[in-house]
């Protein structure tokens, strides 16, 4: 093994082999996936995400939520993802075809979020949780995202989307002030509410 060209060929072959085997092959297998319907003539899924959800996803990316939250419920019987309500079925490659950036995640310091929009449907809940996770989930180790909210003086009419804190909340704003979500917080919650695994695909039916 003294010969540089020969050594180079071996080194090159090993990497090219795995790239062809893993990446090129799966691209050939999955690259032509399109939305599909269970029965002909019905709506095809997955649906395209809305513009607001797409913008909210950018916030999700910018804040690095992926480092504690996965988006890939596993099949029933493999882990307890199904029992925990993280998805009525496992997610499959077709579910991700509209995503320019796929955010599967590999940590569950917090719960899986693939189905969070179906599990926790209230925007108010999400805002309170983002502002201070201890309000909705005492003992959680999620850091507060209160910088996505602004405190301002109550106008003539209180804002409709001002956070409604539970009675006795120690950090509630002073009398005459309210805490409202910024646009970024609103978009982020739009994105979270858009995460739903509430449709079936030909290759992935709901588990019983």
């Amino acid at each position: 093994m003294k010969n540089l060209p020969l050594l180079f060929c071996g080194i090159f072959f090993c990497l090219a082999f795995s790239w062809t085997g893993l990446i090129l092959s799966s691209q050939l297998q999955l690259g032509s996936l399109r939305p599909a319907a269970i029965e002909e003539g019905e709506l095809t899924y997955p649906r395209r995400p809305t513009g607001q959800a797409e913008q909210g996803k950018q916030e999700y990316i910018r804040l690095g939520c992926i480092y504690c939250h996965s988006q890939q419920p596993r099949m029933k019987g493999f882990g307890a993802d199904f029992e925990r309500g993280w998805g009525d079925r496992q997610s499959v490659p077709r579910d991700y075809i509209w995503q320019k950036r796929v955010l599967l995640g590999t940590m569950r310091t917090g719960p899986d979020l693939m189905n969070v929009g179906q599990r926790l449907t209230s925007a108010d809940w999400h805002h309170l949780h983002l502002y201070d996770p201890q309000i909705t989930s005492p003992g959680s180790i999620m850091t507060p995202f209160s910088y996505l909210y602004e405190t301002r003086r109550v106008g003539e009419v209180p804002s409709a989307d001002a956070l409604r804190f539970p009675p006795g909340y120690a950090m509630a704003p002073a009398e005459g002030y309210e805490i409202v979500p910024t646009d970024r917080a609103r978009l982020l919650v739009d994105y979270l509410l858009s995460l739903k695994l509430d449709y079936e695909l030909p290759e992935a039916k709901f588990s019983q």
Partner: peptide, 8 residues
Amino acid sequence: ALGTVQAI
């Protein structure tokens, strides 16, 4: 790349 090919 399309979808989860990115993850791979």
